[in-house]
């Protein structure tokens, strides 16, 4: 290293090089996220006894049914679905709009439910992975295509990908493979089974058009 020691006992740093100064600035910026270990906005629990935490009873239309539910003003839709309505098919992979595992449809448009406040979707139609199949168990064409092609590996990202695809195909029912990849590129698969996912989802577009 051209500069002096860059890792040492705090309080005993010797000299401030230009690079150390810049890194210090970066670190100061990072302190904001480093201190935010606890994400107060995205908590799970039945209720809160904390002062100021006021719940309000609202009506949500989820998977075609009106559901009455008490929500906190800062509660996310993912939390409401998973912890108040028992719809655990919606997964939380990052809780901050990076991975897409929590994707649901709000009035037919895919949204990251970890980043939607529940009270903002009153009066809208919410569809989660549990709401896709017909009441008799017949799978939605996108679901059927995943089964037909043995898509995905660990499948933790699967509900989000399926919802994103259902939403995307509503805007572009006959996508090219490249268009479809762009359409669902807001979702991460850490098993990186993207190729097989695209195989399935192209088949899903076919099945959806024919349905």
């Amino acid at each position: 290293m051209p500069e002096g020691p860059i890792a040492s006992v705090p309080g005993q740093e010797s000299g401030v090089s230009r690079r150390n100064f810049i890194k210090g600035v970066i670190a100061a910026g990072a302190t904001v996220s480093a201190s935010a270990y606890l994400f107060r906005a995205n908590i799970a629990g039945q209720d809160s006894a904390l002062p100021g935490a006021v719940e309000r009873l609202i009506t949500l239309n989820v998977n075609g049914q009106d559901r009455r539910v008490d929500v906190l003003k800062h509660e996310t839709l993912a939390t409401t679905l998973r912890y108040k309505l028992g719809l655990t098919g919606t997964k939380l992979g990052c809780d901050r709009a990076e991975c897409g595992a929590c994707t649901v449809l709000v009035d037919d448009v895919p949204h990251y439910s970890c980043s939607v406040l529940t009270h903002t979707v009153r009066g809208k139609k919410i569809v989660s992975i549990e709401g896709l199949a017909a009441p008799d168990g017949t799978l939605h064409p996108v679901q059927q295509a995943v089964v037909n092609g043995q898509g995905f590996q660990c499948a933790f990202c699967m509900p989000g990908f399926v919802m994103a695809t259902v939403g995307y195909l509503k805007t572009n029912p006959s996508p090219s493979r490249a268009e479809l990849a762009h359409g669902i590129s807001g979702n991460l698969c850490r098993c990186a089974d993207y190729n097989k996912i695209l195989d399935c989802m192209m088949d899903a577009a076919d099945l959806t058009r024919r349905a």
Partner: peptide, 14 residues
């Protein structure tokens, strides 16, 4: 796979 694609598959947090 049907449990996975319908959201019925339970992972630890579910």
């Amino acid at each position: 796979i049907v449990a996975k694609v319908t959201g019925r598959a339970r992972y630890a947090e579910d």
